[in-house]
Design a protein around this nucleic acid. Structure first.
Lengths: 300, 300
DNA sequence: TCGAGCATGCAGCAGAGCTTAAGCCCGCCC
DNA sequence: GGGCGGGCTTAAGCTCTGCTGCATGCTCGA
């Protein structure tokens, strides 16, 4: 394969009409240009320029190479330009993933803000559970994932990834209005002790992290929960709670999906989901820009 | 503009899936490849690869650059290939020029031979007088010109060009059968002394070199020719000679265009046209190949 | 005949870029 | 769980490409 550097030098020479003029354009001495061309002629074993009193003219082979050099130069320029567009957020894509409740409550605002700032970036969003996100980020399937981890609870395996704390999402227990474990004495500000729910039937969020979290929480309180139902849909959970099938854990982010006859109370000991944005370290510009948006909205 | 070398390295890395594998392909150490990629990332101020336990994957910007690199690599390969085709005479063009009588007698055979040897080379031929050929060669309008110069006579201005002697084309005088300067005593092998044509009317070849040559020849013999007619068409010259308008100089190459009632005799002192092939020094392969053909036919 | 402009060759030097060696991180296997 | 191996990175050093500066040869125009 030919040396692209020399090919571009040849192009400059033919465009300029003389080695001296090309050298001036390229910021070299005529000697350097002459040597480059000579090397290319040696490489191709063909004369590429006919030397002239007033400069040089390309031979057939020279003209052929210049045509290719034009394409190469054009590509190099376009490549640089497009990468610059990418870094300046005048182009590019951002592939987001999030768990369902953040998708409904947190992201719409952030995405709106991002689109306002960087309208040229193509956005995509899909739902994904926290535990599948790290691998998909590492595989290059995703750029940024909104995940959560329970506190207390095991940390997510985010080795080699950068996690940005967004906020803590408090977890409530959802109870039917007259639940026996609650009685009539409950005041709106009261918390419910996990231990008092020992005999409750549980309606459990089917998300893998949430499944484990319920069991862990009850284990800490000294019992194994009686799980009556698994569901991944909060409106359905709401209906089940309302109709007295059982109680459920409902984080703040999903509260708006609960019917109004459901009673929501904080837990004691406190349980929160730590909401985070997960990215590769050294993220691409669009990803970094979205992190900025998320951070700025956390502050607000 | 981006460094094409580094761009191609990036391409190799992404294709290979790891820097180490790419280094092996390229014949470098992994360290060298890593430095190249790092330099490119510095140059573009953008991460191009995500580092992985089992190798690397391109980022969006990296994939973008690889696409461009593919085009560049393709062009470089095609360029090398096409130049190789040119040098191997599997492609290319050869622009010939010649004066009229060589075009009719010398070139058809040579061109046939050339086409047999190198059928892929596109040939073109145009008529051109010897004195315009050097400049057109130097300007790159022509690749090879068949020219002639009279001997004795001034040499053609072929500065900076290479001339290849082909053969000498003897010049005859064409006379009407019973021309007074000849009488009835002329035998077929006789020569005609230029001096004896002092009083002849001349029909002159209109080609610039030939115009001058007639005057020079007569001046050497001590007189100024009486020019009755200028023509650039040998059949017409033939007719004029036959009908007794005058005499004319006719080189061997044009003898076949003379009518059979015209008498042709060698001149004393001898006059020849030196037939040459004119090219640039260090000619392109197709041009060199045609020189070979011309030389080989000269030998035969 | 001289001077200006251009290409080229040579000597010399600077720096790009390679190699070697060591380190670190990650995943795997015993 | 700890050693191990594959892979990327960094630092130091060296090689060699490729540039500069200058002298030369050439052509053309005055």
């Amino acid at each position: 394969m030919l040396d692209p550097r020399r090919l571009l030098t040849l192009r400059a020479v033919v465009r300029a009409g003389s080695m001296t003029a090309a050298a001036a354009e390229l910021g070299y001495t005529p000697s350097a240009v002459s040597q480059q061309v000579a090397a290319l002629e040696r490489e191709t074993a063909t004369p590429l320029l006919v030397r002239h009193a007033r400069g040089v003219l390309p031979t057939e082979a020279g003209a052929l190479l210049v045509e290719h050099a034009e394409v190469v130069a054009g590509r190099l320029a376009r490549a640089a330009e497009e990468v610059a567009d990418l870094t300046a957020l005048r182009a590019g894509r951002l592939r987001l993933a999030s768990f369902a409740s953040a998708g409904a409550r947190l992201l719409p605002g952030a995405i709106g803000e991002f689109r306002r700032r960087h309208p040229a970036v193509r956005l995509s969003l899909e739902l994904a559970e926290p535990d599948e996100c790290p691998d998909r980020l590492r595989d290059g399937d995703l750029d940024l994932a909104i995940t959560f981890g329970y506190v207390p609870g095991p940390a997510l395996d985010a080795d080699g990834l950068t996690s940005t704390f967004l906020f803590d999402d408090a977890v409530n227990v959802a109870l039917p209005a007259g639940h026996p474990a609650v009685g009539d004495t409950l005041r709106p500000t009261d918390e419910v002790d996990v231990a008092t729910l020992r005999d409750a039937a549980w309606i459990r969020d089917a998300g893998s992290l949430c499944r484990e979290q319920l069991v862990d929480m009850c284990a800490t309180a000294g019992y194994t929960p009686n799980i009556a139902f698994d569901s991944d849909d909060f409106p359905m959970v709401s209906g089940l709670v309302e109709s007295g099938v059982g109680v459920a854990l409902v984080p703040d982010l999903a509260v708006h999906q609960m019917g109004r006859r459901v009673v929501l109370r904080r837990l004691r000991p406190r349980v929160v989901r730590r909401i985070e944005a997960l990215t590769l370290p050294n993220p691409a510009p669009a990803t970094a820009a979205m992190l900025d948006v998320l951070r700025s909205r956390r502050a607000a």
